[in-house]
Design a protein around this nucleic acid. Structure first.
Lengths: 128, 128
DNA sequence: ATTCACATGTTAGAAAACTTAACATTTCGT
DNA sequence: ACGAAATGTTAAGTTTTCTAACATGTGAAT
């Protein structure tokens, strides 16, 4: 009777995502520009977002509140998506760059991971 | 981690609903015209559909396949929404009209109710 | 076989929503 | 004070959606 949405299905136009996330269109596009999200496109080139996208945006918002910048958030995502493989060979940034980046950002107040699992988006606000 | 969408929240533009239901825009608007659904509107007057709306549309589609017409489906919905109250005083149709209507339609092949509960929409196709 | 009503298709014109791109503003760290 | 990062704002163009009107297909009744 009450099922779960297929969270990867592109369903939502940007206007709705703006409401759900309280982000501006500018912000959402900016985060896409920086590869933090990759919403689908209609044939006419309009962005269509999945619930996962919304979750990601809420997470991004949270990280930004914590003082992270685009590069830092991107790096966290890259690390997440790399299960436990070759930690060597950072995809594009040098070790030094990465260390500096994380150091610079994290000295603020951010904690990259919650102990016991990754931080989750807060889409649950809109669920029941 | 995997929540349930608030199914009354208007999230979906008509293009997506068309995909989810395999109905044309014309059909969807026609069913609204006949009060079978009442999707929300944006400030700019664009229809925005909830998951409940999608469920309803799938149900409508099914009833149409079974030979029901707009009036018949509407009547079924009106009956559903009337828990067990004053069965007298049909909202707008006379008893005779109602009887004729249901009779005409149901002699076809439709069964108004499934034994053991009302027929449910088939949105679960899109869920996991 | 017509006719009629219902459901749907099709089209046109207007308005809303979304797009990219450019430039402006704010904020923060050096 | 300066520079970079994030966001605001605006403009011009395209896509999507809207309503309304008219057309078509189909089944039921005459």
């Amino acid at each position: 009777m009450t099922n779960r949405v297929r969270r990867t299905m592109p369903l939502l136009p940007i206007s709705i995502v703006m409401q759900l996330t309280e982000l501006t269109a500018r912000q959402i596009r900016y985060y896409e520009e920086h590869k933090l999200i990759s919403p689908a496109r209609t044939e006419g080139n309009k962005r269509m977002f999945s619930l996962n996208d919304v979750d990601a945006l809420l997470e991004i918002k949270d990280y930004l509140d914590q003082g992270l910048n685009m590069a830092g958030i991107k790096k966290l995502y890259d690390l997440k998506e790399t299960p436990e493989n070759e930690k060597a060979e950072p995809k594009s940034l040098s070790d030094a760059e990465l260390r500096k980046l994380l150091h610079e950002e994290l000295k603020h107040q951010a904690r990259p991971f919650e102990k016991g699992g990754f931080r989750q988006g807060d889409l649950s606000r809109f669920f029941n």
